[in-house]
C-alpha cells in the first residue's frame, strides 16, 4: 500500500472538519472492507485517511419517534444480532447475512455499504423498499434525503466532499411493514449478487395491496425501485397472478448489463422470479399480522 497520512476522528464535527480541510485528497475509513482493498490497487490513493471506525455518535440501533435509526457504523453482524431488527425487519437480517462472510460482516458497516454504492450492494434494496432516508452530516449542518436520491450512479452518491453519512432511518410508519429480501448469487458465501430484490406491502382493511414497494439491485447503475411494477400492484387483491405480472413488469423496467457473472437476459429472468417471490413472502407475512 502507498503511504498516506492517517487521523482517527474523535467525533462527527472533527471528521467533517477534516473532510473540509482535505477535500478530495481525503477518504473516510469505516469498516475498511472496500476502502482497504481499493487503497491497495488504486493508482491514485488518497493522501489522507480519516478513520471514523471509533468516532462517537455513528453507532447504535434504536427506535425513535422518527422511526428505526441505524447508525452508519453499525456492522452487518450487529444488524443480524439486533433484537429490534430481528423483531421488526427480519428481511434486513437476511440481507446482512448474504453479505461477504463472517469476517467481512464483522468489519463492514451498513453506512460503508451504502456509501460505496456498488449497484449489487445487498443493504440497499430492503431499505429502499421501506422508504428509508439517510442523514448526512456536514460543516453547515445536517441534511436528509430519501435513499432513492442518495444513489447517483455506480460508486457515486449525493455526498458532498465535506459530508459524512451519519445514520439511516426507516420511517416510523413503516416499522413492522411486511418486507422480504432475496439474493441470487453464484455461491452462498463471498458472492456478489447477480440480482437481489426486496418487496414490501401493507394490506388494507379489505385485504388489498397498499403502498407496494419493489427495489432491485445489480440490474441498473444504482439500486432502483420498479415503479411500474408497484403501480400494477397498488389497490389490487394479492393473487399469485398479479405477483407474477409484477415480476414481468419489473424485468422490463430494469436495465441489467451482461458481464462474466451473468447475461442481461438471465438477470431479467431472475428479476421476474425474485420479485414474484419477495411479494409472496411479504404477503404471507402480512397475513400473519
Amino acid at each position: 500500500m502507498r503511504a498516506f497520512n492517517y487521523v482517527a476522528a474523535g467525533d462527527i464535527q472533527q471528521a467533517v472538519r477534516l473532510l473540509a480541510e482535505h477535500g478530495s485528497e481525503a477518504k473516510i475509513l469505516a469498516g475498511g472492507t472496500d476502502l482497504l482493498a481499493d487503497l491497495k490497487s488504486s493508482p491514485h490513493p488518497p493522501r489522507m485517511v480519516i478513520d471514523i471506525s471509533r468516532t462517537q455518535g455513528l453507532g447504535g440501533i434504536e427506535v425513535t419517534d422518527k422511526g428505526l435509526r441505524i447508525g452508519a457504523l453499525v456492522t452487518h453482524t450487529e444488524i443480524m444480532k439486533s433484537s429490534v431488527i430481528q423483531e421488526h425487519f427480519p428481511a434486513l437480517v437476511d440481507a446482512a447475512h448474504t453479505i461477504g462472510a463472517v469476517q467481512t460482516r464483522n468489519l463492514g458497516t451498513l453506512g460503508g455499504n451504502l456509501v460505496t454504492a456498488v449497484p449489487s450492494m445487498d443493504s440497499g434494496p430492503t431499505l429502499m423498499a421501506l422508504d428509508a432516508w439517510v442523514v448526512l452530516a456536514g460543516n453547515s449542518g445536517n441534511r436528509q434525503m430519501p435513499l432513492t436520491e442518495f444513489f447517483k450512479g455506480p460508486r457515486r452518491t449525493a455526498l458532498k466532499p465535506d459530508e459524512l453519512l451519519m445514520e439511516i432511518v426507516i420511517p416510523a410508519e413503516n416499522i413492522g411493514k411486511p418486507v422480504n429480501f432475496l439474493k441470487s448469487g453464484l455461491r452462498k458465501g463471498q458472492a456478489l449478487a447477480l440480482v437481489n430484490a426486496a418487496g414490501s406491502l401493507w394490506l388494507d382493511a379489505k385485504g388489498r395491496i397498499r403502498e407496494p414497494r419493489i427495489a432491485l439491485g445489480a440490474v441498473a447503475p444504482t439500486v432502483i425501485r420498479a415503479p411500474n411494477a408497484e403501480k400494477c400492484l397498488a389497490g389490487q387483491v394479492p393473487t399469485p397472478e398479479i405477483m407474477v405480472e409484477a415480476g414481468k413488469i419489473a424485468a422490463e423496467e430494469c436495465k441489467p448489463i451482461t458481464d462474466f457473472r451473468a447475461s442481461a437476459t438471465y438477470r431479467k429472468e431472475i428479476v421476474e422470479v425474485l420479485v414474484k417471490r419477495v411479494l409472496m413472502h411479504a404477503h404471507a407475512q402480512a397475513l400473519k399480522k
Binding site: G31, G32, T33, L36, A37, Q103, N106, L107
Partner: peptide, 22 residues
C-alpha cells in the same frame, strides 16, 4: 482483499480479515 480468509485473526472476540484492518 478479504476474499480468502487466510489472514483471519480474532480481534476482541470476533474473527476478521487482518488484511482489511489497519
Amino acid at each position: 482483499v478479504g476474499d480468502c480468509g487466510a489472514c483471519t485473526v480474532i480481534v476482541d472476540g470476533k474473527p476478521v480479515n487482518a488484511c482489511l484492518m489497519l
